[in-house]
Computed example of a mutant assay.
Amino acid sequence: MDSRGGQRRNPYELTDESPVYVISVAAQLSGLHPQTLRQYDRLGLVSPDRTPGRGRRYSARDIELLRTVQQLSQDEGINLAGIKRIIELENQVAALQQRVAELQGALEGAASAMRQREAAVHASYRRDLVPYQDVQQTSALVVWRPTRSE
């Protein structure tokens, strides 16, 4: 597992979560000043991984998040506290969507197991012991009138 909770098959495989960019490269890629990246880190807007020497290492996903923060701040006029809340809510929505998918998978598995058990029970019926009677339905109406006893 990596530091963000994701699974890695190969330690040398690069993903969007791989922390590979030093702060100067991340600043260039995001179009921001390195000091701005440090400030965003202090505020918790973007949390890059750290090297053993405490240097920041940014992933491609971090770079994309930095661009989003810049766009929300400059183009939409949202303050940094609002942007932080938006990021938190987006992360929460993503976690909930993942949980819903997990629960749907579990539900489908349980429904499949139930259908299999139901089919096994039906297959075990001894039909030679169950009498079959064809019931005819009619539309006859029966009227009951009490008789007077005198």
Results as ranks from 00 to 15, higher is better:
residue 2 D to G: 11
residue 2 D to L: 04
residue 2 D to Q: 01
residue 3 S to Q: 12
residue 3 S to G: 01
residue 4 R to A: 06
residue 4 R to P: 00
residue 4 R to K: 04
residue 5 G to L: 07
residue 5 G to A: 09
residue 6 G to S: 11
residue 6 G to E: 13
residue 7 Q to T: 14
residue 8 R to Y: 11
residue 10 N to W: 15
residue 10 N to C: 11
residue 11 P to E: 14
residue 11 P to M: 13
residue 11 P to H: 12
residue 13 E to Q: 14
residue 13 E to G: 01
residue 16 D to G: 15
residue 17 E to D: 13
residue 17 E to N: 05
residue 18 S to E: 12
residue 18 S to H: 09
residue 20 V to W: 05
residue 20 V to E: 14
residue 21 Y to S: 06
residue 21 Y to R: 08
residue 22 V to W: 05
residue 22 V to D: 14
residue 22 V to R: 15
residue 23 I to G: 10
residue 24 S to K: 14
residue 25 V to E: 09
residue 25 V to F: 01
residue 25 V to K: 12
residue 27 A to W: 11
residue 27 A to M: 08
residue 28 Q to K: 14
residue 28 Q to P: 02
residue 28 Q to V: 06
residue 30 S to P: 13
residue 31 G to L: 02
residue 32 L to G: 03
residue 32 L to T: 09
residue 32 L to D: 01
residue 33 H to K: 15
residue 34 P to C: 05
residue 36 T to C: 03
residue 36 T to W: 02
residue 37 L to D: 07
residue 37 L to G: 03
residue 37 L to Y: 05
residue 39 Q to A: 06
residue 40 Y to C: 01
residue 40 Y to I: 04
residue 40 Y to N: 00
residue 41 D to H: 15
residue 41 D to W: 03
residue 41 D to V: 07
residue 42 R to P: 04
residue 43 L to K: 08
residue 44 G to N: 06
residue 44 G to W: 13
residue 44 G to L: 13
residue 45 L to F: 06
residue 45 L to H: 00
residue 47 S to G: 03
residue 48 P to V: 05
residue 48 P to H: 03
residue 48 P to A: 03
residue 49 D to F: 12
residue 50 R to W: 10
residue 50 R to Y: 07
residue 50 R to K: 15
residue 50 R to F: 06
residue 52 P to N: 07
residue 52 P to V: 08
residue 53 G to L: 02
residue 53 G to Y: 05
residue 53 G to S: 11
residue 54 R to W: 09
residue 55 G to L: 15
residue 56 R to K: 10
residue 57 R to L: 15
residue 57 R to S: 06
residue 58 Y to K: 04
residue 59 S to Y: 06
residue 60 A to N: 09
residue 60 A to V: 02
residue 61 R to S: 10
residue 61 R to K: 11
residue 61 R to L: 14
residue 61 R to W: 08
residue 61 R to I: 08
residue 62 D to T: 10
residue 63 I to L: 08
residue 63 I to N: 01
residue 64 E to K: 09
residue 64 E to M: 04
residue 65 L to A: 02
residue 66 L to D: 04
residue 66 L to M: 14
residue 66 L to E: 00
residue 67 R to I: 02
residue 68 T to F: 12
residue 69 V to Y: 00
residue 70 Q to F: 06
residue 71 Q to R: 15
residue 73 S to M: 11
residue 73 S to C: 08
residue 74 Q to D: 11
residue 75 D to M: 05
residue 75 D to H: 12
residue 76 E to Y: 09
residue 76 E to L: 12
residue 77 G to R: 04
residue 77 G to P: 03
residue 78 I to H: 00
residue 78 I to E: 00
residue 78 I to W: 00
residue 79 N to E: 10
residue 79 N to V: 08
residue 80 L to D: 01
residue 82 G to T: 02
residue 82 G to N: 02
